[in-house]
Amino acid sequence: MRVVIAGGHGKIALILERLLTERGDTVAGIIRNPAHAADLEATGAEPVVLDLEHTTVDDVARRLFGADAVVFAAGAGPGSGAARKETVDRNAAILLADAAEAANVSRYVMISAMGANAEAPDDPDNPVFSAYLRAKGAADDDIRARDALAWTIVRPGRLTDDPGTGRVQVAAHTGRGPIPRADVAAVLLAVLDTPAAVGKTFEVISGEDPVDAALAGALAAL
């Protein structure tokens, strides 16, 4: 399988790239900063330098031809303002979807966020986070409306850098909770291998069940 990951230098993306390449898949990671190329190469992934905030559908599509799946793992990141939540978390995700359709790549996996909602109200104590939830929600809504994409939307809980446990809880609504980034990457890997995940949106946090069992159980209930 060939997988292209947008936001290829993100923490989850780097783990996923290593998981994929270690089992023999081919991976390309889209990055904005060429200084990050060596980190992707260390995982076995091919770095593709492209700024998703300043490019076109055709430019992205050229990088996607021949892929079996795309994963949106990009994000404006902590410290960014509301404007970049819109240009990265919303617009770049939609741009990747447009490019995937243009390149005839139907499988699209989105790393979203728990609480993502295009109509999320303003929080006067944290207006940037409100903008983030709206941007992610709007992107999710756009992806779900596309008949040409075999999409899955994964909404993790609070991300940590703790070692992965390989045990998670997956459900339409899990309730709040943390999850190591390594376990999110393991869930994404399982999603890419699971046709039943197509057309599903679900939350994931740390839990008691192995990833494959947790995913299978949740998908049967969704």
Rank of each mutant, 00 (worst) to 15 (best):
A83R: 15
R84P: 02
E86T: 14
E86L: 15
E86D: 14
E86Y: 13
T87Q: 07
T87K: 02
T87V: 09
V88Q: 07
N91Y: 12
I94L: 11
L95H: 05
L96R: 06
A97D: 12
D98H: 11
D98M: 04
D98I: 06
A100T: 04
E101Q: 08
A103N: 00
V105I: 09
Y108L: 13
V109I: 12
V109L: 09
V109R: 00
M110L: 15
M110A: 13
I111K: 02
M114D: 09
G115M: 00
G115A: 04
A116W: 08
A116N: 04
N117Q: 12
N117L: 05
N117P: 06
E119P: 01
A120C: 10
P121R: 07
D122S: 12
D123Y: 11
P124V: 08
P124K: 10
N126G: 05
N126E: 13
S130W: 11
S130T: 12
A131P: 02
Y132A: 11
L133G: 06
R134F: 02
R134M: 03
K136S: 09
K136V: 05
K136H: 05
G137I: 01
G137W: 03
G137Q: 08
A138R: 13
A138Y: 07
A138Q: 12
A139W: 08
D140Q: 07
D140R: 03
D142Y: 15
D142T: 14
D142L: 10
I143Q: 01
R144A: 14
R144E: 14
A145G: 13
A145D: 14
A145Y: 12
R146A: 07
A148Y: 07
A148L: 09
A148Q: 12
A148N: 08
L149Y: 03
W151V: 04
T152E: 09
T152F: 07
I153L: 11
V154L: 09
R155K: 13
R155D: 05
P156G: 03
G157K: 00
G157C: 01
L159A: 09
L159P: 07
L159K: 07
T160D: 05
D161S: 11
D162T: 10
P163W: 13
G164F: 00
G164W: 01
T165V: 05
R167H: 13
R167P: 02
A171W: 07
A171D: 14
A171T: 04
A172G: 15
H173W: 12
T174M: 11
G175N: 04
G175F: 08
G175K: 08
G175S: 08
R176T: 14
R176A: 14
P178V: 12
P178Y: 10
P178I: 13
P180T: 06
P180Y: 01
R181S: 02
A182T: 11
D183F: 04
V184L: 06
V184F: 03
